[in-house]
Amino acid sequence: MLGLIGIVMSSEDPNNTDQKTRLEMLNDSVIKLDSFIEDILNYSRNTRMGVVMEEINFEEILEEIRNGHKFMEGANKLKPLVEIIQKEKFISDKKRIIVILNNIISNAIKYRDTSKEESFVSVFVECDSKKAVITIEDNGIGIADDKQEKVFDMFYRATKLSNGSGLGMYIVKETLEKLDGIITLESSLNKGTKFSIQIPNQTN
């Protein structure tokens, strides 16, 4: 659907502003619907599916997520900074880890601070025989102190700029619980947000 809209938008009459506006509104609506459906599917899968253990390559996972965000609005304006220290074999559920990281990184793109000269999202991963420690930090719009404790609640939106389902961070928390992982949040309004994640290594 998005592809068809893109084709129509690229071939439309540039002087027809009314048609352009309607196509842009349709495009935005489809993106919101697509995001909502993806959230519902992720929530459903996490609830009913068992944990599937396999060896995790964080470099491959982050590359997959980056490619998935290529056409997301604002992704090309966000500088990615990645550092991975993975000397030990790490075993966990790949699909669930992708859901966790994808949600947080996509939020960094959505809620970047457009007033800043340079926007970034940094991802640091360090694995040992016991756990993976993942830190995702951005210099986006941040989250007010009085809203931070509700970020992981179902259907909660921390900002009026949000046009999502309000399920994303709830799914992150629920998915991490399936992996016996934990997540903490640090954020300052207008400065940025940092998520710190720990996931046990299931090598034994």
Rank of each mutant, 00 (worst) to 15 (best):
S106C: 03
S10W: 01
N57Y: 02
E12P: 00
N57R: 11
S188F: 04
S196G: 04
Y43E: 14
K79D: 14
N163F: 11
I65C: 04
I197M: 08
E126T: 06
I97G: 06
D145T: 00
L41C: 13
V151R: 08
Q86H: 00
C127N: 05
S162R: 07
K116W: 01
I100R: 13
I65A: 09
N15Q: 11
S187V: 00
V52G: 02
L41Q: 14
M72T: 14
V151A: 12
K130I: 04
L176Q: 08
K110M: 03
I104M: 15
I141V: 15
R157Q: 14
E137I: 03
E83W: 07
N57C: 11
S122G: 07
I84C: 04
G3E: 11
K173R: 14
I199N: 06
N102W: 09
T17R: 07
E12F: 06
D18M: 05
I5G: 07
L23Q: 06
S115N: 02
Q198E: 15
K178E: 10
T114S: 11
T203I: 15
K173Y: 08
T184K: 09
Q86C: 06
I104Q: 04
H69A: 13
L81P: 05
K131G: 05
C127R: 00
G192P: 02
N102V: 02
G181A: 05
I134M: 07
T135K: 12
Q198P: 01
T135E: 08
F155S: 04
D146W: 01
D153T: 08
L41H: 15
H69L: 15
F71K: 03
S165G: 12
G68T: 09
I183H: 10
G50F: 12
F124G: 10
M72P: 00
L189P: 02
S92V: 03
D39I: 08
N15L: 09
I105H: 05
A75D: 04
E83Q: 11
I134Q: 04
E55C: 02
D153M: 11
G50A: 14
T114Y: 02
G140R: 08
V52F: 12
N67Y: 10
F36V: 12
K95A: 14
Q19A: 15
G164I: 08
Y170S: 15
I91A: 01
I182D: 13
L161W: 12
I56V: 12
N102R: 15
I104Y: 04
S35E: 14
